[in-house]
Simulated scan of single mutants.
Amino acid sequence: MTDFLAAEDRALLERHGLGNFDALWAKQLEAVDEPNTARGGWSSVFRLDLEGHGYYLKRQSNYQMRTLHAPFGEPSFSREFRNISRYENLGIPALKAAFYGERKVEGEVRAILLTRALDGWDDLDSLLQRWSELSEAQHSAIMNACGQLARRLHGARQVHGCFYPKHIFLQATGDGYQAQLIDLEKTRPLLFGLRDRVKDLEPLLRRAPQWNEAQLRELLAAYLVQSPDSSLIDTWLVRLTARRSYKGVR
């Protein structure tokens, strides 16, 4: 496939000699965490800063996965890049890609995915850790932003597959928060209606024990475009609680 280089990032990357696959592969950087070696190859993430602009440079070698798109295997970044592009086309707020490319070098399959860093944004997980320090107005704005994000996701007939606090990023605005998603590798089409929607939302609630029922109702009110005391929200709470109990037993 042809390399992707976002028009908005081209000049900056080329100014630093990083506008192509070989240069990005050879760039010496310190990894932000331990390499992942679960698929028989390796995959690693690096921080790249250029003139005040932050990026995450992800490189992998022989880190393959089987998909319907590529039943004999493809780099996991390939699927993630397709999903990033799909989210952008569908208008779902999510991280943006600056570069994507693949190479086969003497039997080795290499892939690079460069994404723009969400500097100035907080992941929901970190906000939950200081939930008691936030005001009621902030709580309400965060619930509303998360509910609206889920509504746009499912309204576009997509299931995130890892709708966890650490994958939801929020930024304060003048009148609330805006939210977007990262880690789109497991995204798939929403095929089974209500079941898929409940299955996608429940892990978020399970990983946010700080939220009380009134706050969950706020989130669902934004998601379903209902008043917080709606009987429809009662039904959703029953379904989500049942699934949470089932997952807890397992």
Rank of each mutant, 00 (worst) to 15 (best):
R47N: 10
W25S: 11
H16W: 10
D9M: 12
S44A: 11
W42M: 04
R15W: 00
E8D: 14
L24E: 05
G52A: 07
D49W: 06
H16C: 09
L13V: 00
F21C: 09
Y56M: 07
G41H: 06
A6Q: 03
S43A: 13
F46I: 07
A7Q: 13
A38H: 12
G40R: 05
G17K: 07
Y56N: 09
H16A: 14
R47D: 12
V45G: 03
H53Y: 07
G41P: 10
D33V: 01
Y56Q: 07
G19H: 02
E30I: 14
E14F: 01
G41D: 09
L29K: 01
L50M: 03
P35D: 05
N36Y: 10
G40T: 11
A31G: 12
G54S: 13
F46N: 04
L24A: 02
L18A: 15
S44F: 01
N36M: 13
N20W: 00
Y55C: 07
K27D: 09
A11T: 11
R15H: 09
L29V: 05
K27N: 05
G19D: 00
L48C: 04
R39E: 10
R39K: 14
V45F: 07
G17D: 04
R15V: 02
S44W: 01
D49M: 12
G40W: 06
V32S: 02
R10M: 05
F21E: 10
D9P: 06
A11E: 14
F21L: 15
D9V: 06
V32Q: 05
L50C: 08
L24Y: 01
A26L: 11
E30F: 08
E34D: 12
G52K: 01
E30Q: 15
D49S: 14
A11H: 06
H53E: 15
L18D: 14
E51I: 01
E8A: 13
E34Q: 14
E34A: 15
R15E: 12
L18M: 14
H16E: 02
A7K: 09
E8G: 00
Y56P: 08
S44P: 00
V32H: 05
N36R: 14
H53T: 15
E30H: 11
L13I: 02
R15M: 06
A26E: 15
G54P: 06
K27I: 15
L13D: 00
W25D: 05
A31I: 04
F46P: 09
S43Q: 01
P35G: 10
A23Q: 13
L18H: 12
P35C: 12
Q28F: 00
A31V: 08
G41C: 09
G54I: 09
